[in-house]
Write a protein that binds this DNA or RNA. Structure first.
Length: 263
DNA sequence: ATGGCCATTGAAAATGGA
């Protein structure tokens, strides 16, 4: 089975491209982030025509996550227990959706950006990661043999070598020790970030800004990851970052991260 | 060629992204 995660930066703009990619690569399950639409605006028909069922959560033009699967999609959960909200009035944003697909419990996650270190969004980001880590700890403890994947756009650069020039990020989000600690803490829940295990090379990126020729200059960031429970980790044969998907007109600024699983 | 922001809302300019 092949499962993947991809921040598509608007699913309405890129539905045909995403589904063509799913079919071409033979991907069974895709965790999608930044759908940027309400559930009723989601291009359900494009996915269904290709044989994918979809579970969606979306409130407006911001955020939005989904899971597409051609191996079943059951026990859908929109948001996680204790998921923090943001704003006044406080809203629990559509940033997490879970479903069981082909025997794997998959979560599609879009971690808050943080904006600036002194912005309320940054404190929200840390709260959000901490709450997810707490909940993930419960999931693993409750079902230690369950294949579980926490996949998505984590908006954290775990190591200096996960960005083209860490000096350019001095005083900015994504690289702060608190964010890195919050990201690393998922290992304490018994999870392993399997893209790192299989693709340890430095300067291996999943995101390139649209501006200033970032992609041709390879000024990228590694911020899309997949944490796996022991039962899933043992089944990961290989991990691929599909860098080619950043090429050409109409690309998302993120590329897919793919996990090939043993049956 | 992989090429100097993009998507959404709403109808100009603002918001968010990272």
């Amino acid at each position: 089975m092949r499962i993947a995660t991809w921040n598509v930066n608007s699913v309405r703009t890129r539905a045909e491209r995403v589904v063509a990619w799913l079919e071409r690569t033979g991907t069974d399950v895709l965790a999608i982030q930044e759908t940027k639409c309400k559930e009723e605006q989601f291009p359900h028909a494009v996915f269904e025509a290709a044989g994918y069922e979809v579970a969606v959560v979306g409130l407006n033009q911001w955020n939005g996550v989904a899971i597409a699967s051609r191996v079943g999609i059951d026990d859908v959960e929109r948001g996680f227990l204790g998921q923090p909200g943001f704003g006044d009035p406080e809203v629990v944003e559509p940033r997490a959706i879970g479903a069981t697909c082909g025997g794997v419990r998959v979560w599609s996650l879009y971690v808050p950006n943080g904006r600036e270190l002194d912005h309320p969004h940054y404190a929200y980001k840390l709260r959000w990661l901490e709450a997810l880590q707490r909940e993930a700890t419960e999931w693993v403890a409750a079902s230690p043999d369950l294949p579980l994947a926490l996949m998505g756009d984590w908006n954290v650069v775990p190591f200096d070598t996960d960005v083209w020039d860490v000096a350019a990020f001095a005083g900015k989000t994504h690289v702060s020790p608190a964010e890195r600690d919050a990201f690393a803490a998922f290992a304490d829940a018994g999870l392993t970030e399997v893209s790192r295990e299989h693709l340890p090379a430095e300067n291996t990126y999943t995101y390139w800004d649209y501006q200033q020729l970032a992609f041709p200059k390879n000024k990228g960031m590694r911020i899309d990851f997949a944490y796996a429970s022991p039962a899933l980790r043992a089944r990961v044969d290989s991990v691929t970052i599909d860098r080619d998907e950043r090429k050409g007109k109409g690309a998302s600024d993120h590329v897919p991260v793919i996990l090939d699983l043993a049956d």
